[in-house]
């Protein structure tokens, strides 16, 4: 059921490097630009794509992703259109796993069964839903797993050894370790602390562990990638998109190439990560 995701992690591991997971907000700044950004990501070196579903009240996100969501919603983005972005991407890429990331309410209003059916049809491989902890697994996690869609859970510094088994119980695909207590886009903590946390999680699961929140540069990606199975970059990409827009928030000729250049650099970072660790 998780063939595309598992294969990608296995293939990249065989290359002896961590996976580069890239996040961007669906519909930011508009639908067609989003499709172009998504298609550009694997070509620039992204291994897994997190496609953001905008929400009016993103309680776990910092200002950059909040603003991206507002731009997207202002441009008329809906959950149906976010699924359409993925479907368009799948027309030319059948191998890169896609993880939808966002909040529960738009999915709840769309209807859980209808959403899962449409997500599968659009080529979605996994879900990250920030406000659905394990205590709420009956809502979406269990139905998603039944349909063959991964449910990727966040583990955080507050997730202690007592709680980790509960968090990991129904997690599939990979574990997303949030490197700090805080919102997206904060400063990156000490890589050695992160290495310790990754080791602690790996003591409880065989799933790959990806680390995110605060990874902004190729150097960060290299440092984190030394211990983690994957590195997630989100806010840096969202900021790159924002900086390329006109004052009215419209895309420019620099929008897609800017993302490509950034991701190419990050990709070089993860590709040198294990070399760095071996030094």
């Amino acid at each position: 059921m998780t063939a595309r995701m598992d294969k990608r992690f296995a293939d990249v591991a065989a290359e002896g490097r961590p996976v580069l997971v890239t996040y961007f907000m669906g519909g930011d700044p508009d639908f067609e630009t989003s499709v172009a950004i998504m298609k550009a990501l694997p070509k620039a070196g992204a291994d897994v794509i997190e496609l953001g579903m905008p929400f009016s009240d993103p309680m776990a996100d910092g200002p950059a992703i909040q603003l991206a969501g507002q731009r997207s919603l202002k441009g008329g983005q809906t959950l149906a259109k976010t699924l359409e972005i993925a479907r368009r991407f799948r027309e030319e890429d059948q191998r890169t796993p896609i993880v939808l990331m966002g909040y529960y309410n738009p999915i709840y209003i769309y209807g859980v069964d209808r959403f899962l059916t449409d997500a599968l049809a659009a080529g979605i491989d996994g879900l990250i839903v920030v406000d659905l902890p394990p205590e709420m697994d009956d809502e979406l996690c269990i139905p998603a797993l039944d349909k063959g869609i991964n449910f990727i859970r966040l583990a955080t510094p507050t997730t202690d050894d007592r709680r980790l088994p509960k968090v990991l119980e129904n997690t599939t695909g990979f574990v997303y370790y949030v490197s700090m207590n805080g919102i997206t886009g904060s400063a990156l903590p000490d890589p050695s602390l992160i290495a310790g946390a990754v080791g602690r999680i790996k003591g409880h699961t065989n799933l790959p562990v990806c680390v995110g929140f605060g990874v902004k540069t190729a150097e960060h990606a290299r440092a984190i990638g030394a211990s983690a199975d994957g590195v997630v970059v989100g806010t840096a990409i969202v900021n790159q998109i924002a900086s390329s827009l006109t004052e009215e928030g419209k895309a420019t000729d620099a929008t897609v190439p800017g993302v490509e250049a950034l991701v190419r650099g990050l990709s070089a970072g993860v590709r040198s990560a294990r070399l760095a660790a071996a030094e």
Partner: peptide, 20 residues
Amino acid sequence: EDGRFGIFGGRFVAETLMPL
């Protein structure tokens, strides 16, 4: 015990907050 009043209520929060 899960904080529900019928279908309402619950604990829809980020994992960071769950232990708190």
